[in-house]
Amino acid sequence: MKYKIAVLVVTYGEVEQLSLRSLYPSSWRILQLITSRIATLPLPLKAFIALLRSLRRKKEWKKLGYQPKLAQINRAQTQALAKRLETVKQLSGRNVEFVVRDAYYFTKPYYEDVLNEVKRSCYAVIVIPMIPIESEFACGVGCALALEHFGDSVFERVRVIKHLWNNEEFIKLCVNRIFEKYERRQERKVGLALVAHGTLIKDTKGRELKINTGYKETLMFYERLKTAIEHDTRNRFASIKLGAMNHKFGGIWMPQTLERALEEFRAEGIEEVAVFPFGFLADNSEADLEAVMQVRAAGYPMQYIPCLNDSPGFMDWLAKRVMLSAEHLLKLQASTLVQMPFQLEIATNPSS
C-alpha cells in the first residue's frame, strides 16, 4: 500500500485578473483572515473597506501596467517541488507518494478547500507557508485553519514547516542569491535594502499586542542575513539596512521602514540602491512594485534582486525539509497507530 502524503505550497495570493470580480473576494478574505486577528470590524465597514481597496488597486495597477506574478511563481515552485519529490518512493520503511498542491489564503484555490480535498485521501499533510518569517498572519493562519479542519487528529496528521529564516542553509541561499543576481555596473557607493513586510508592534492605544506579529523574528533574520553578507568575500555594499513595508492603519508599526533606510542612505552618501526582498519567497506587488517605486521616487539608481522564487538550490533545500517533516509524521503515526485507528482509516481509504 502507498501512503499518500499531501504537500501544500501556501502563500497569500494575488489576483491574476484585474477585475472587481477577482479583487473584491481577495480584499474581503484579507479582512476575514488577517485584519480580524487584531480588530473587530462591523460587517458594513468591512464591505466598504474591501470595495475601496479593490477599486484603488485596480486603478493603480492598470495605470502602472503592473501584472502580479505571485500566483504564477507559486505554481512554478509547486511544480519544481513535485518534480523533486516524485523520485522519493520510500520513507521510514514505507512506500510513499507525494501529492503536491498550490493553495492560497486570499485567492483560489483557497487553502481550506485544498485541505478538505486532501484530508480524505492522504495519510499525512505537510503545509509550507511560503513566507519565511512566522507570525500570526502567516503560518498562524495555516495552523488555525488546519486545526479547524482536522480537529484533534491535526497533531498526528499535519506538520506546518516553519523557522525557515533561522536555518543556516537558508541564509546561505539568500546570500548567494544576492551576489549571483546583483550586477555591479559602475564604481558607485551602493547600499543594500533588505525589504520585508512591516509588522505591528503596538495596538491603536499604544498597548503591547497579545499575538506574535513576527517583529522579533524579522529583526533576528535581518541581523543574521546582514552579518552573513558582510562576512562574504564578494561583498562590496557600503551599507546594509532593513526596509519594512508598513501599512497605515491598525496600530503602531515597526520603525525600521524602507523610507527611513533611504533617508539614512542619503546621509551616508549612498549613490545607488539594491533591493532584495528577504522577507518574501516569491516576487509580489509589495516587493517588485511598491518597494521599487519607493526607491525610484527617492531618486536613486536601483537594482531589484528577485526573490528566491523557484531557483534550483532553494527547491532542492525545500524538498529536503519536506522529506524530513514527512519522516517525523510517519514515525509519530506509527507510534500512535493503536490509539487512532479511525483517523488513519479515513486517511488511507478515500472511500471511507
Rank of each mutant, 00 (worst) to 15 (best):
M1D: 08
K4D: 09
V9L: 06
V10S: 12
S36H: 01
L41V: 11
P42T: 00
L43P: 14
I49H: 10
A50V: 07
L52H: 11
P68L: 01
E86C: 10
V88C: 08
K89M: 14
L91F: 03
G93D: 02
V96H: 03
F98A: 02
A103H: 03
T107C: 09
Y110R: 05
R120L: 15
Y123I: 14
P129V: 14
E134P: 08
C139V: 13
A146N: 03
A146D: 00
D152Q: 11
F155Q: 09
V160K: 08
I161C: 10
E168W: 02
Y182L: 08
Y182P: 01
R188D: 04
K189S: 03
V190H: 03
L194G: 00
V195N: 05
T199N: 12
K202G: 07
M220F: 12
R236P: 15
F237E: 00
I240R: 00
I240H: 08
M245V: 11
G251I: 06
I252G: 09
L258S: 04
A261T: 02
L262W: 08
L262M: 11
A267F: 13
E268Y: 13
E272V: 05
V273P: 07
V275T: 08
A282C: 02
L289T: 07
E290W: 11
Q294W: 01
R296E: 12
Y300D: 03
Q303D: 06
M315H: 06
M315W: 05
D316R: 07
A319K: 04
L329I: 05
S335W: 03
F342L: 15
A347C: 08
T348G: 08
N349E: 10
S352A: 15
